[in-house]
Design a protein around this nucleic acid. Structure first.
Length: 677
DNA sequence: GAAAAATGGATTTTT
DNA sequence: TCCATTTTTC
């Protein structure tokens, strides 16, 4: 990027020497943010405009000006972003930014709640339920409420939990959520409310918080404990929030509360990239920020350092069709570059063949395979491409999939450690007990009842012989369970989570893996990796919280905070959602057909259609040099057979000057797809 | 309680 | 088509 000259007319007076030459590192608007963003500020940062960079320099600037690290709260959307920001600030200042509050909403909520749990009658040793745990608990609630689910179609526990979760995040009643988003379940609204009450009660009884509670109870803490609120709001002189367009109502309220004393609230985001409404993100948070903060300063970062002019032109033309937005016009610092291509292929098979072949060609013309990504609306759209890539021997990774920490064997092993931290955690009791052959859900609950009578004293349970009333095979299972329990309770290993996991493995879980999973070897390796990861922690509480709040994926190396992962040279296949914030030299967007993208279900509702268009916008703005949009004219649908598709409206509504049309012809002799321009 | 067979449902997904 | 979950059967 070419540095621009900037003359500071109101240079802030400081008696400290600033070691970083901000004017050299930032463009004019970025610099203005870094140096002058006091009070309520909204930074509208277009795609590729150096948003992260600007935030980092703002933090560095504050620190250099003498603001203490603990007075800064920097909230990000993912842990990955948090780690990146922290380490980049450290690199910039050549020091460890110890004390800086930097993390996701949930992460910081966890930290605050551990400190002040007693103020709202919560145990500081509370456990955290992940998505699966929450689903299981909802399932248990449905069961114990005896809801007649047989006669009509009662939703699955996961859906019920999604409704409850949405209501918490959007701060709406369950009834309203059902009316607005799940009208076809309106007959069950009462049931959902009963389930929610019981679900909350069960969480309280077992000292567990789900993800939403980390926000809801944090809010509760700030509202009920005046002393805590005073302390925290005075402490955070500067509150900075990244990806503000993806915050939901409860997060918006938290941010407002936390910045209420010093009123230095800097929110950064791009309304054109708000794509998470399905989990209660509300684009109004960013759109209405100026109205909510009358004296708010608004900054626009519209210089795009990523893409060529013709790619940006296509993106600009597309997003203009949205009504609810801050109009922006991204300007490229690069030349026009190659015109984006719109490619019509016959069907999914040909789409896969075309993309694979073009990747080979692009690779031959000098673009490394790991500089290329294929993006799609929904995961299943990649299936045919995967086959084709395998056939041609092109190495690829699929972003996402099963999360490392959510795999059964990882969660099994961790359930024992969770027991150690929170002995009244019914969910972990049941999980750990049912691992034993001979113990099913029924007996597990019974045994938990007996253990609960011992006030969850694990040592007593490990030694006790309360199995008289149980059948022999259950007693055998219980013996196996107790053996593991003894291993982790014998000496105090709370500060050595790695040793604890090893005890669980040696105590019998290794054997369980070998006997129950056909890919046992692979899973044992995962568990070894878990031990290594645990080694970096020096207490159980932090380890368990991080494991639950972390979004590491299977196949990805688990890295320590701030560490760098080694990305091997592989093509990336990714959903558009997962590609947000990333960039590649060449991008293929596949499935650009009516009914697929925009998704069929979003066609009736104008707001949802706009969100789909923003998603398209996110997809195309990932590309630096080459953009290829692919549309298959027919598609095989498992109920309707072969369906003829028109191109996506997102392409159809663009001026024809924005792209070149390309057709594909098949050369049958060689059974190869030939690319013709 | 565990294994086998049948059913149904399929955007997006972080914490 | 493919998977995860539920129901049935032993």
């Amino acid at each position: 990027m070419s540095p621009k000259k900037y003359v500071l007319t109101t240079a802030p007076s400081t008696d400290r020497h600033l070691s970083i030459d901000y004017a050299k590192e930032l463009n004019a608007s970025q610099l203005e943010v870094a140096m002058t963003a006091e009070g309520p500020c909204l930074v509208l940062a277009g795609a590729g405009s150096g948003k992260t960079r600007t935030l980092i320099y703002r933090v560095a600037y504050l620190l250099e000006r003498g603001v203490r690290p603990e007075e800064i709260l920097l909230v990000t959307f993912t842990n990955k972003a948090a780690h990146e920001m922290r380490s980049r600030v450290e690199t910039l200042l050549k020091t460890k930014s110890k004390g800086l509050w930097c993390g996701t909403f949930h992460h910081i909520g966890n930290r605050v709640l551990r400190m002040y749990a007693d103020r709202i009658g919560l145990s500081p040793e509370f456990g955290i339920l992940d998505a699966e745990d929450s689903r299981d608990l909802v399932k248990a609630c449905v069961k114990s409420l005896d809801i007649k689910i047989s006669d009509s179609r009662f939703p699955k526990p996961g859906v019920v939990h999604a409704i409850i979760s949405f209501s918490v995040n959007a701060k709406k009643s369950v009834r309203d959520v059902v009316r607005q988003r799940y009208p076809y379940f309106s007959q069950f609204a009462d049931d959902f409310e009963r389930i929610k009450r019981l679900y909350d009660e069960k969480k309280r009884k077992t000292s567990n918080l789900d993800f939403d509670d980390l926000l809801a109870r944090w809010t509760e803490l700030l509202q009920t404990s005046i002393e805590t609120r005073e302390r925290l709001t005075r402490q955070f002189r500067y509150v900075l929030v990244d990806e503000y367009q993806d915050t939901n109502r409860i997060q918006q309220e938290l941010v407002a509360l936390l910045s209420s004393h010093h009123k230095n609230l800097l929110v950064v985001g791009d309304d054109a990239q708000s794509i998470y409404s399905f989990r209660a993100a509300d684009i109004k948070n960013i759109l209405d920020f100026p109205e909510q903060h009358e004296n708010a300063k608004i900054f626009k970062l519209e210089t795009n350092y990523r893409s060529t002019a013709s790619i940006l032109s296509l993106a600009n033309h597309s997003i203009k069709h949205n009504v609810h937005q801050f109009p922006k016009e991204l300007k490229s610092v690069h030349g026009p570059g190659a015109t984006p291509q719109f490619v019509k292929v016959r069907d999914g098979r040909q789409e896969a063949a075309f993309v694979a072949q073009r990747i080979v060609e692009q690779n031959q013309s000098g673009i490394e395979v790991d500089e290329i990504a294929v993006l799609f609306r929904a995961r299943y759209q990649a299936a045919e491409l995967e086959l084709e890539l395998a056939k041609r021997g092109i190495p690829y990774v699929i972003r996402g999939g099963i999360r490392f920490f959510e795999q059964a064997h990882i969660k099994d092993a961790l359930s024992f450690l969770k027991l150690l931290q929170n002995p009244m955690d019914e969910i972990s009791w049941i999980r750990a007990l049912t691992l034993q052959s001979g113990i099913g859900a029924g007996f597990a609950e019974k045994i938990f009842g007996l253990a609960a009578a011992e006030k969850g004293d694990l040592k007593k349970v490990a030694g006790a012989d309360f199995g008289q009333s149980l059948p022999a095979r259950v007693r055998d299972g219980l013996a196996g369970f107790k053996k593991i329990l003894k291993g982790i309770t014998n000496d105090d290993l709370r500060d050595h989570p790695d040793a604890l996991i090893e005890r669980v493995l040696d105590g019998g879980y290794n054997k369980h893996v070998l006997m129950n999973f056909e890919n046992a070897q692979e899973r044992l390796e995962d568990l070894r990796e878990l031990v290594n990861f645990a080694h970096t922690y020096k207490n159980l509480k932090d380890f368990l919280a991080d494991v639950t709040l972390r979004e590491s994926f299977k196949g990805e190396t688990i890295v320590d905070a701030g560490g760098d992962e080694d990305e091997s040279a592989e093509l990336v296949l990714s959903t558009i959602h997962q590609a947000k914030g990333l960039e590649w030299k060449a991008i293929f967007v596949i499935g650009l057909s009516e009914g697929l993208f925009p998704h069929a279900k979003s066609m009736e509702n104008e707001d949802e259609l706009e969100e789909e268009r923003r998603l398209f916008y996110v997809a195309v703005t990932r590309a630096k040099e080459e953009l290829t949009l692919v549309h298959a004219m027919t598609r095989f649908d498992y109920n309707a057979g072969t369906v003829i598709n028109r191109p996506s409206v997102f392409v159809a509504e663009l001026p024809s000057s924005a792209y070149d049309d390309v057709e594909v012809e098949e050369n049958n002799d060689q059974e190869e797809t030939i690319y013709i321009d």
